[in-house]
């Protein structure tokens, strides 16, 4: 049993205090301790992007981050993207453009797109594709995802 450490950070605007094992991944902490199961573990080694969350404005693979490294940080997860007005434009575009099939990669995709568009609101098609290169989708062939992002960027 590894040592436990107390951490405090912000998730989707709410302050959380959690006691985590020193070796726990941020993904396990989010899923198992905070019940935020939107981020998925699909590879556990930073190769697929299904666990993507945004930490202090930067998209990261939460499976590769230690939970303790979230101490003092501002975390955004898929659960915080929808607002009181409804779906975020990225989420709405994913629905409208058919960018979702099995959907297992979708939360990570949406977070990565959010990061990409935050950094570069007017990306070229190539920049959109590059922005998604760390996120694997096995169902859609990416075309509809790229269409959705293009729509959000242009509106």
């Amino acid at each position: 049993m590894s040592a436990k450490i107390d951490i405090e950070f912000t998730v989707n605007g709410a302050v959380k205090q959690v006691t985590v094992p020193a070796t726990a991944s941020a993904l396990d902490m989010l899923r198992d301790q905070l019940d935020l199961k939107g981020a998925k573990e699909a590879c556990g080694e930073g190769e697929c992007g299904a666990c993507t969350v945004i930490v202090d404005g930067v998209s990261v693979c939460s499976c590769l981050s230690y939970a303790v490294d979230f101490d003092g940080r501002k975390i955004e997860t898929i659960e915080g993207v929808q607002s009181d007005e409804g779906l975020d434009p990225i989420q709405q575009a994913f629905v409208d453009y058919g960018a979702v099939q099995c959907g297992y990669c979708t939360p990570g995709m949406v977070m990565q797109v959010k990061h990409t568009l935050d950094k570069n609101p007017n990306p070229t098609k190539e920049e959109i594709q590059r922005g998604l290169e760390g996120n694997v989708c096995r169902c859609t062939g990416y075309s509809k995802i790229i269409d959705a992002v293009t729509e959000v960027a242009s509106s």
């Binding site: 899923r31 573990e41 994913f94 629905v95 979702v100 959907g103 939360p107």
Partner: peptide, 20 residues
Amino acid sequence: AFPKPDAPDKVVGKTTYIND
């Protein structure tokens, strides 16, 4: 061009997969 009925829950991370 009819969107999948399961898509909205999937884009907000609400869908409970067997793994969840």
